[in-house]
Amino acid sequence: MPSETPQAEVGPTGCPHRSGPHSAKGSLEKGSPEDKEAKEPLWIRPDAPSRCTWQLGRPASESPHHHTAPAKSPKILPDILKKIGDTPMVRINKIGKKFGLKCELLAKCEFFNAGGSVKDRISLRMIEDAERDGTLKPGDTIIEPTSGNTGIGLALAAAVRGYRCIIVMPEKMSSEKVDVLRALGAEIVRTPTNARFDSPESHVGVAWRLKNEIPNSHILDQYRNASNPLAHYDTTADEILQQCDGKLDMLVASVGTGGTITGIARKLKEKCPGCRIIGVDPEGSILAEPEELNQTEQTTYEVEGIGYDFIPTVLDRTVVDKWFKSNDEEAFTFARMLIAQEGLLCGGSAGSTVAVAVKAAQELQEGQRCVVILPDSVRNYMTKFLSDRWMLQKGFLKEEDLTEKKPWWWHLRVQELGLSAPLTVLPTITCGHTIEILREKGFDQAPVVDEAGVILGMVTLGNMLSSLLAGKVQPSDQVGKVIYKQFKQIRLTDTLGRLSHILEMDHFALVV
């Protein structure tokens, strides 16, 4: 994948999101292997301009796509893939009243899908469409860049269908997702969380590099694949309309690839034109409109599966009536509230959605109805927002919020430890010299600072030695090549209790 991002070429006709291997024109390309080798690009942008032909009021008969309808489940399912879809609609009884809503608040519980998330729908649909058009064949390999849930859905379907599955996901995604993927037989590649989507090191860039190296491999490409919004247009939206008897006044959905909100909203605009569509985008993402909503100094966020630093091709923002931004604290607070007060075992993005819903639905009156999409299960986040310690460490809970008995030293300040200034190293000294210094002084790690004293990161003896043994660096290389740029900081005025929580999850903390 090139470091400079080429513009994806656009073909003359058809839909841009065809499933299957992508040609340089962004659509299915038939021909000899030699032709494909000559024409197939190194990668295709996940934010390529959409060429979708959908228009409100256009006859369904003019759609270029294969459409399906929700099917009634048999008493005995032939395999677990038949437990994807037909998820329950559940009334939220307490939270709406707590925040003064007059309307009825309903939750579409997508964590009841077989793999635990709304992404099971698009995973199965992308595979079925690729099999139907002859792209996927027995023994082929599926590769997908994902925040985890699409990966789980694909790995689940691949396990049943017999495909090899490789999932490329950023490091910030939970260990629970990784464990589930491994249990399903998927191979996992992790990428830096802070890598831009168009960087060769991003999950998108690495996935395309693997595709170019592995024979008979395919990126189904949830960011561009029409099967993504079509899955929701054909099934999720129809289920909502049936469950609500066609009567709903507002739908609120958090947005990642945009397939969920695009597919549902398009069908609702056709069948229930008075329904307002509300999009939820986390602070630090750029999906919301108008652009002024996205202006923030924050560039990272903890909530998973929603928000991006690019506009995915499948996201149709014209069908969203209003956007709201959400933050991590309210997302996790509301997710825990949904679990504790409503018994809905949902993930953090569901918290984002409901946090926005109780604001947006203030305009609705008694007798009206708001539906929220709860995308995934708490299963993926047992060591994250479900953990009091994690919430404390991230600053989303305060010590006084917890009532468990603490040891005698818990409320003492870090400054009472009488710490001395640490050994520091410059980023320009060599790895070999740094190892000598650390061994001589008896230290395992040291902060790396520039000549102005600005902290650049941390270097550890173990990481340097393993990097040297693996051949990633040489003793003569500058130590700046092996620094940890993500590390926890703590102030002298913070409590030892807070430091204790940090050290339970990290090997060190830097006192500043």
Rank of each mutant, 00 (worst) to 15 (best):
D47K: 05
R164I: 04
R161T: 04
V118G: 03
A237V: 15
I264M: 14
I127D: 06
G148C: 03
S3R: 15
T257K: 02
L220W: 03
Y223M: 04
P33D: 10
K137V: 04
I264D: 06
S63N: 09
P170M: 07
G162I: 07
V160Y: 08
I122E: 01
P145A: 06
E171R: 05
F197A: 06
K211I: 10
G139Y: 08
L241N: 01
R224L: 04
V10F: 15
E187L: 04
P229L: 01
P215Y: 08
L106Q: 10
H232G: 00
L248N: 02
P41K: 11
G26A: 03
C165H: 01
D221H: 07
D79Y: 08
A8N: 10
G246A: 04
L230Y: 09
R209Y: 09
P64L: 05
E187C: 10
M250F: 05
A159V: 15
S27T: 15
I84P: 08
L136Q: 06
S73Q: 13
P229D: 04
M250D: 01
A107S: 07
R164D: 04
V160S: 09
D120N: 08
H17T: 09
K75W: 13
K97C: 05
L77C: 08
S123N: 09
L220E: 01
E144Q: 06
G139F: 12
S202E: 06
P2I: 14
L268G: 01
S32F: 06
R91W: 02
T191V: 03
D221V: 02
K72D: 09
V255K: 03
T150I: 00
D35H: 13
D133S: 04
R276T: 10
G274F: 14
S61L: 09
L81K: 07
K36A: 10
R161W: 07
G57I: 09
L136W: 07
I76E: 07
P200G: 07
G274R: 12
A8Y: 10
E128R: 03
S19E: 06
P145M: 00
P215L: 03
G116R: 13
N216L: 06
P170K: 01
T150K: 02
I152Q: 01
A48I: 10
I219G: 02
K177T: 01
G134C: 07
V255S: 05
L230S: 05
Y223G: 01
P59H: 10
N149S: 03
D198H: 08
R161P: 07
